[in-house]
Design a binder for these strands. Structure first.
Lengths: 197, 197
DNA sequence: AACTATAAAGAACGTTCGTTCTGCTGTCAA
DNA sequence: TTGACAGCAGAACGAACGTTCTTTATAGTT
């Protein structure tokens, strides 16, 4: 039996890219095209090695399916110095699945696109997607989606003279001191930004 | 032709549950068991209706695959005003998959945790996870992971007197004018931040 | 130059798959 | 009470699929 090698890594990358497009692992015949291999038997040998490396597995029906590791992205930690440049370790650290990191309770999580710039000093820009966990309680200092006078707003929760206030992270905007009830819609648990390609 | 009905919703739920477990859509024969239907032809009729409702579709090979709607995470767009509060619409907008939004080419994508605060004015904080697409070319204005004198750094790519320079987004840090070669490791295509729970 | 292991191709074959067509059963309106 | 149709079952069939076995090409070693 042969081992998982560099070429198999290329095959894995091609399979991951195909899967990103089509969300399934196709027949051996189609994988011949995807991998650039002419024989089905060799495609199977590749898949067996990928499964031994725990990137794919089989259903009871014999269909190939991806494992968790298949979706994980390499994550280089403690590597990029945004202050002063620092050497990167070529070794790939642990793996990382974005959805899993950001969303712990899918049924309570909503994504909301941010409008305006009142939280810009907190690094939250217009167009960013806020990951919000719906719940009615929050702690002082949390960034919350609050319902003030039947309207929603994204602000930092704070307290002043025993009353809750909503503090923007932009000096151009005023602190909100709710007159009526202050209801919490949810708490900001994550943020996602996409840069133009 | 018949329409999508309540029973089809049950079939859809069963299919979603199966897919969550096995990450593929199996053969008609297996779907007979999953749906509790005895005939393959009727299973096919169900799938055709699910595809007409845009929950699944077919690859050029004829394989059934899920659509974006199949995974359905609600995404409320244009709703939260970070400037002045604005009414939220209870309607759920389009659907949204974080991984898919941020990662177009899995094999070329790496995640890197940001250190330091030299890009803080661009809303990139220490501890944020940068989504980096590995490639050697970039455009002026892109935020890049550059290799300067064998070291990595995250900066905005700019040009000055015909030479490339790396501009931090923090006045406390100097502009980097590479003496040796300027090599691009990759381009910042996304950013992910997780707030403490 | 011969040997060996590995990488890949190719052929053969039984099974399974998707498709299509026909048949059955219950329901509802005329 | 008959017709019509929707919901579903079952059979038939050719094409595609996965598996296994055999063969060829390439590279490295002795």
């Amino acid at each position: 039996m042969t081992e998982f090698n560099i070429k198999d890594t290329e095959y894995l990358n091609k399979l991951q890219d195909y899967y990103a497009d089509w969300k399934n692992i196709p027949s051996y015949a189609r994988l011949c095209e995807v991998f650039g291999i002419a024989s089905k038997s060799w495609v199977k040998a590749v898949l067996v090695r990928l499964s031994e490396a725990d990137f794919i597995e089989r259903t009871p029906d014999g269909a190939w399916i991806p494992t968790r590791q298949f979706f994980a992205r390499p994550h280089a930690e403690s590597t990029v110095q945004a202050g002063m440049p620092v050497a990167i370790s070529a070794t790939q650290g642990d793996f990382f699945i974005i959805d899993e990191m950001l969303i712990e309770t899918p049924s309570k999580t909503t994504l909301i696109t941010v409008k305006g710039d009142s939280m810009i000093d907190a690094g939250i820009h217009e167009g960013d997607v806020a990951v919000v966990e719906k719940r009615m309680t929050a702690n002082i200092g949390d960034i919350v989606i609050a319902i003030v006078d039947d309207e929603f707003t994204l602000k930092t929760l704070d307290r002043e003279n025993g009353a809750f206030i909503l503090r923007p992270a932009n000096p151009a905007y005023p602190v909100i001191r709710p007159q009526g009830t202050l209801e919490i819609f949810g708490v900001l648990t994550g943020l996602v930004r996409k840069y133009r390609k």
